[in-house]
Amino acid sequence: MKILFALAGLHRVDRGAEVVFISLASQLARAGDKVTLIGSGPQRPGAEYRYIRAPAMRREWFERWPTLPMFRNETAWEEASFGPGLLSVFRPGDYDVTVTCAYPWTSWALRRPTGGYRPKHVFVTQNGDWPAYANNAEFRFFDCDGLVCTNPDFLERNSERYRSTLIPNGIDTGRFTPGPAERERLGFPTNGRVVLMVSALIASKNVEEAIRAVAQVPDANLVVAGDGPLREQLKQVADEVMPGRYKQLTVPPAEMPALYRSADAFLHLSRDEPFGNVYLEAMACGKPVIGIDLPRTRWIVGDGAFLADPDDPSDLVRKIEAGLAASASSPDAFVKRAREFDWSNIARRYRTFLEEVVAA
């Protein structure tokens, strides 16, 4: 099967969606499919798939740009800048099926009328399912031949309207494994316990809530790996409520396993994220997970995580303390849960669904 994955950030950044598409492409190409990726970054040596570059402007350049219909945030502006390059290199006849998680501009480019053959199109709800169910503004033009729902909520909401399937994200269990901490090399605090967040510094990730909760736990430090428009605001809050116990940093993708291994517990407080890859990465490295007790979160992490009442801030503090206490116990249960999501299993489920869509 000839498969195309298209996304502006491919080969330029390693956020959740980019990691998902690259991991799937590698697995599918290894199994014998002809897989192509189109993104805005450079070639990467050793890739098992074909890669085509289409330029795009980084979303950070658009953080202060106006919010308009079809340009609702810096991500939409970045995607719009990717559209012309994508159109110039996309050859519909080269593919059986196209895959993206970006709407509107990337989806529109892949679905544009050609007057001839148009490959089947699959949309993945990596960033949410609102394009599929909303019926206003640009969302009323959404269309796809198959919808991959990354959690049960999305499947229930959309299965009657689209050919849909439930497939979670995955984890490279050969790369994310338990191991020794490397705190000094990574710039972690060397005194006290460390709670780690891996998060974009945006409002929906609730990093300020995490700062205020960890501040109430004696001798606990908070390390936040990520960047975003709230970087300075969050530093100011931390300086006020937990001076000397907060660290913001960024690390290259190759350092992510060492990052998790160097923490005592992992914290993630997003309430509306379609699927938190970071939960799996932390568990695969043997780290206790602390989060908000929501059905979607529990579906990912199982019953071994420390999930707090979303309406009780004091319960979050208690769960952080419990998670830190559990860090000294055996990591086997966390690792076992993560291995259920190995990319080889997830890729097989994608392959089955793509085959169904193409044959329909």
Rank of each mutant, 00 (worst) to 15 (best):
M1G: 07
K2W: 09
A8E: 13
A8V: 04
R12Y: 10
D14L: 13
R30V: 11
G32L: 01
V35N: 01
L37E: 01
Q43T: 12
R44N: 04
R44P: 06
Y49W: 15
Y49D: 02
I52A: 00
I52L: 15
A54T: 07
A54Q: 02
P55K: 02
A56F: 09
M57I: 12
M57D: 13
W61A: 14
R64L: 13
R64F: 09
W65L: 05
W65S: 05
L68E: 00
T75R: 12
A76K: 10
E78A: 06
E78F: 04
G85A: 04
G85W: 08
L86K: 05
L87H: 11
L87N: 11
F90W: 12
R91I: 12
P92E: 00
G93D: 13
A102W: 11
T106E: 06
L110S: 03
T114V: 13
G115M: 02
G115H: 01
Y117D: 01
V122G: 00
V122A: 05
G128C: 02
D129I: 00
P131I: 00
A132E: 00
N135A: 13
A137K: 12
R140I: 10
F141I: 03
F141T: 09
V148C: 00
T150E: 10
N151W: 03
E156K: 06
Y162F: 12
Y162T: 00
R163E: 07
T165Q: 02
G170V: 07
T173N: 04
P178T: 06
R183H: 08
R185M: 08
P189S: 00
T190A: 00
T190C: 06
N191T: 15
V195K: 03
V195M: 15
L196V: 04
S199W: 07
A203R: 14
V207D: 08
A210L: 09
Q216R: 15
D219A: 09
N221D: 03
L222N: 09
V224T: 05
G228Q: 08
P229Y: 12
L230P: 03
E232H: 14
V241A: 09
R245M: 04
Y246W: 08
K247P: 05
Q248S: 02
V251K: 03
E255Y: 11
A258K: 12
S262I: 08
F266L: 05
H268G: 09
L269D: 04
E273P: 10
N277C: 11
Y279E: 06
Y279W: 14
A282C: 07
R298M: 01
A305K: 08
D312F: 08
P313W: 07
P313E: 06
L316A: 02
V317E: 02
V317I: 07
R318E: 15
K319W: 04
A325M: 05
A326R: 14
S329L: 14
A333D: 13
F334R: 07
S344E: 15
N345L: 14
T352E: 14
T352Q: 13
T352W: 05
